[in-house]
Simulated scan of single mutants.
Amino acid sequence: MLIEKFLKQAKEEIIMDTVLSDEFMDKVQDNFAPIESLMAYYRCAIMEVETKFNVLNEQFSLQYDRNPIESIKARVKSFDSILKKVKRKQIPFSLESIEENINDIAGVRVICSFQEDIYMLADCLLQQDDVRLIERKDYIKNPKPGGYRSLHLIIEVPIFLEKEKRPMKVEVQLRTIAMDFWASLEHKLRYKKNIPESEAEYLAKELVECAGISASLDQRMEAIRDRMEAAQEKIS
């Protein structure tokens, strides 16, 4: 028993000495450096896209005295999430393959006041000569079966590094406040476990119905805004 304990302790010490050695740490750093660089490039791409939307929001504020954007959220996928997607998509594990096959590593979510602002901002963004549209999915006109609504764009924008210009992919999601509220709650509820199948079916129907109510609210609020603007024009 004492010998086994001694051997286990000696094994742990050897492992720790190996792991903490300068040579091992250098190898780890060499392998992670390209990954860290790629993640930094995606963060730079996010900043580029955020700036474009902030400029558009400022322009509309000056020109029309209103801000079509309520808020902007951004994130870069964690490396753990990227690895899971590599496994799910069954693509080669290389930086080149990840860059080519995974389009949503960098994500920007734009929360708009009204539904028409979504399409207006999307058109303004895509008209810019340094933005290339790769993919467009309109889940507002064609909601997902569960009720999800949003406009998704996969775009490519250039980032300007010290010695090169590098194109990077960014997923842009545009939603109204109501769409974002529904999607955020649905996301939290989706991961609740140990719910009986019959109850899960009922809740899924409730979520679809709530999505319809949310869409109706967007339409009614937009109609109220239009009526208020028409009333103001009559007075002036």
Rank of each mutant, 00 (worst) to 15 (best):
L2P: 01
E4W: 13
L7Q: 11
K8I: 01
Q9D: 10
Q9G: 02
Q9M: 10
A10F: 05
A10I: 01
K11Y: 03
E12A: 11
E13F: 08
D17E: 10
L20Y: 04
L20V: 05
S21K: 11
S21L: 14
E23G: 10
F24L: 03
M25K: 11
M25T: 05
K27D: 11
Q29W: 09
Q29G: 14
D30W: 05
N31R: 03
N31C: 03
F32S: 06
E36F: 07
E36N: 09
L38P: 00
Y41Q: 06
Y42E: 01
R43M: 01
C44Q: 14
A45R: 09
A45S: 05
M47C: 04
E48D: 07
V49H: 15
E50M: 15
T51W: 15
N54L: 15
V55M: 15
E58V: 07
Q59L: 12
Q59R: 13
S61I: 10
L62A: 11
Q63V: 10
Y64I: 07
D65G: 15
D65V: 03
P68F: 08
I69A: 07
E70F: 09
S71I: 09
I72E: 06
K77F: 12
S78K: 14
S78C: 11
F79K: 14
D80N: 15
S81G: 14
K84D: 11
K84L: 14
P92K: 15
F93V: 08
F93P: 08
S94G: 09
S94N: 04
L95H: 00
S97C: 04
I98S: 00
N103V: 02
I105Y: 04
V108S: 06
R109D: 02
Y119D: 05
M120E: 01
L121V: 07
A122D: 00
A122T: 02
D123P: 04
D123T: 06
L125V: 14
L125Y: 13
Q127G: 13
Q128C: 15
R132V: 09
L133A: 15
L133R: 15
L133F: 03
R136D: 07
R136P: 07
R136K: 10
K137Q: 02
D138T: 05
D138C: 07
Y139A: 06
I140R: 07
I140N: 09
K144V: 06
P145T: 04
G146W: 07
G146N: 10
Y148K: 09
S150R: 00
H152L: 01
I154N: 00
I154K: 02
I155P: 00
P158K: 00
I159Q: 07
K163N: 07
E164L: 04
K165R: 11
P167A: 05
M168F: 01
M168V: 08
K169C: 00
K169P: 01
L174F: 03
I177E: 00
F181M: 01
F181P: 01
K188W: 01
R190P: 04
Y191G: 02
K193V: 03
K193S: 03
N194I: 06
P196M: 06
E197W: 05
E199N: 13
A200G: 12
A204N: 13
E206G: 11
E206P: 08
L207I: 06
C210Y: 05
S214D: 00
S216H: 03
Q219L: 08
A223V: 08
I224Y: 13
R225W: 06
D226S: 10
M228P: 06
E229G: 10
A230N: 04
A231G: 02
Q232I: 02
E233V: 05
K234W: 08
I235V: 12
